[in-house]
Nucleic acid binder design. Structure first.
Lengths: 150, 150
DNA sequence: TATTGTTATACTCTATAACTATA
DNA sequence: TATAGTTATAGAGTATAACAATA
């Protein structure tokens, strides 16, 4: 391919990065808005989702799975603890680690908040046919999985 | 579908929002890193891409197409003007509007920087088969287009 | 009165790195 | 000496709203 052709092959409305930015910001804004309504925010979301999936992780494990910095995890947990949605429990063998657990209140939020998230996801995907939706999610998941292996 | 089934149908690694966040942040980080190397940053990217596509827009038009706030556009243009990549020219009929143009230097950056962006896009898409890549981009573009119509 | 563009200000996020206490 | 977690601090980015100039 010639250099000129290559340049012509690039357009904003066909550029992966731009398209991702647009759709992601819509998804983020919509979910954040719903979380704000119950006094939470998007920064807390990865941690909550992870804890609904598995409790008893250390902060290091939690940070790694949420792909957030360790100091961010500290502050998110501070906020969630202040709201009495999570608690730091003693690690059985290490006195410098904590194990993070949801409180009953934190656990109780799961079904309502996941319903909100699914609602946002569904509404964004609703412009695609059902089998297109599955196709899209599969390809997207494939990209995520491949990049995580790096 | 029962409430329980619905909940079970949600998992982080199959959630549109989460997957978008992961892939988008990779794309953003990679492009930003390359832009930093030439003294630019990701905040300038939408404006530059737009101007390479069409010059002579007002700031309001530019802000709307870049989906940035008007005050953000002011500051991005200040930075780009300081780097002598763009210039604000007088509007022929309105004395409160400007028309934004690239300088020769700004225009000259196009091919190298778009090559960088295409490189990032290609590397992220490279884990998909060629026809999967086209499929993915088409579905993503369809979602973007549908949402813009709202 | 509404619009274009700029600016002041405050607030949130993020990044760096220093720090304590453990291991 | 390295790791878990916290905190101080600074910088970037973002949002609100006030403002001047113009339409």
């Amino acid at each position: 391919m010639e250099q000129g052709d290559k340049l012509a092959a690039f357009s904003r409305d066909r550029s992966l990065g731009w398209l991702l930015a647009v759709v992601h910001s819509r998804a983020a804004d919509q979910l954040d808005e719903r979380l704000q309504k119950v006094g939470l925010n998007l920064g807390m979301w990865p941690t909550l989702m992870m804890l609904w999936e598995e409790e008893g992780l250390t902060q290091v494990e939690l940070a790694s799975r949420c792909m957030t910095a360790h100091y961010t995890t500290t502050r998110v947990l501070d906020s969630l603890e202040k709201k009495q949605l999570v608690e730091r429990r003693k690690h059985p063998t290490s006195r410098r680690s904590h194990l993070i657990y949801l409180t009953d209140e934190g656990r109780a939020l799961k079904s309502a908040l996941i319903a909100e998230a699914m609602d946002v996801n569904d509404s964004l995907l609703s412009v695609l046919q059902p089998q297109e939706q599955q196709q899209f999610l599969s390809l997207l998941a494939k990209m995520v999985a491949a990049g995580s292996a790096d």
